[in-house]
Design a protein around this nucleic acid. Structure first.
Lengths: 239, 239
DNA sequence: AAGTGGTCTAGACCACGGA
DNA sequence: CCGTGGTCTAGACCACTTA
């Protein structure tokens, strides 16, 4: 009854082929792709078709083009990880760069709600990164970051982790965050947060619950970020 | 010293020409555009160039293509206004449809911070729409929506306004919201909110401060939405 | 059957970056 | 200078909608 599965357009096949190379590590972040003509010849399609495939990858922030130089696999540079995936802005709209204050790395069985959110077995191990950070110089965030130990076997001795965690996932474990889904709500600062961040006592906090996906749509992280928004705000543009 | 202003690519000129037609009202929401070939002939470019221009308009949600039928100026359908520009989701991720409880329309001189945000003169008149709404059946939001009276001369007798305000701007005043910028923070429910929404007393609330732009990047609205996020959350996807 | 957008090709020329 | 991506064209054929 369902319509027969149409053959995918060529440009979509080219896109998939390139994503597979990135996911498998044969094309690494920062590396230059073969030229459009080279890819076209190799994959037996026209240059225009390769171009269209690359257009979709550019739109998804998976590759970057540089005229005269080539097309490069997107890197989680400090800049991108901090401003693209962490959208806190000061009053004037200028980006607020976070600075880590405390960091604690532990390994444990996944709590039920975390296992569900990560889509892993309840008894599976996760690494918990608990940290506090400043925004605009003031202590302002408390984060519980959970990653499946099977995918990202981070150890306590790996710390201190870099300011932009996603660059670490990529450089140390070959996993790129391609997409993240945030759910934002407001809560009263809970006790565990106040313990680490005394200035949050009695304050309303922004709670950002995130699930992050890699190139192949595997869930590689979930985090619960509690943010004091006295001087900053989470910025979003809708089109 | 600055580099000479390059001539804009043809497809960008086509894009601009089409946006102008939409902004001037010669192409109205829901209306079908001339076919790609017709536009190509009319504007003296190739069909491929028109196509590229349309691609950018599709990417910005300004037009929609329907294979076999044509390309249409995007409408603020109920669906789009409610789910695209209002991203509250229930626990399971299902969209939460708001229902208006109370609505009050007044006209006044713009408060200083509102005038600044709207980019209008301090003595200029604004229309204030103050309303409370439910989410998932429970009273949950309080909004102060300010629009410049010069652009959107809404009167108290125009009420009750439709559930999706942006459809009203479009159908009654010919203004389309093309883009909105939200800044999210957490606050304790202020007195003015509690007065209208007693269940917010003592609660942390999500405050969404929005500035909305039309096709020509004019600011046509700013709003301050206070949202109780006990059952819902503001959802965002980052790429 | 006619008309629309969707895909794909082949080839031209331009603009930029690096050797 | 050469190779890269960026723009633009002309034309073919496919897929979908409507009449």
């Amino acid at each position: 009854m369902t319509t027969a599965p149409r053959t995918e357009p060529l440009y979509a096949q080219v896109r998939t082929a390139l994503i597979e190379r990135m996911a498998s590590g044969s094309l690494r972040p920062g590396q230059v792709l073969p030229s459009e003509f080279a890819l076209a010849e190799e994959l037996n399609v026209s240059q225009g078709t390769v171009r269209k495939a690359l257009d979709t990858l550019v739109a998804d922030n998976l590759v970057q083009r540089r005229q005269g130089r080539g097309t490069f696999v997107a890197e989680h540079t400090q800049e991108r990880a901090l401003f693209h995936f962490f959208r806190m802005e000061g009053i004037g709209g200028m980006p607020a760069i976070p600075q880590t204050l405390t960091e604690e790395i532990t390994q444990r069985a996944a709590p039920a709600r975390i296992a569900t959110r990560l889509g892993i077995d309840k008894s599976a191990d996760v690494v918990l990164i608990r940290r506090t950070r400043t925004l605009l110089g003031k202590p302002a965030t408390f984060e519980d970051i959970y990653v499946p130990h099977a995918l990202l076997p981070i150890r306590a001795t790996d710390g201190p982790l870099p300011n932009a965690l996603y660059t670490h996932y990529q450089s140390a474990h070959g996993l790129s965050v391609a997409r993240a889904e945030d759910r934002l709500s407001a809560v009263q600062a809970p006790a565990k947060v106040v313990k680490a961040l005394p200035q949050a006592e009695g304050q309303a906090m922004l709670l950002a619950t995130r699930v992050a996906f890699d190139l192949t749509d595997r869930i590689i992280e979930t985090r619960e970020s509690y943010i004091l928004t006295t001087d900053t705000a989470y910025a979003v543009t809708l089109r």
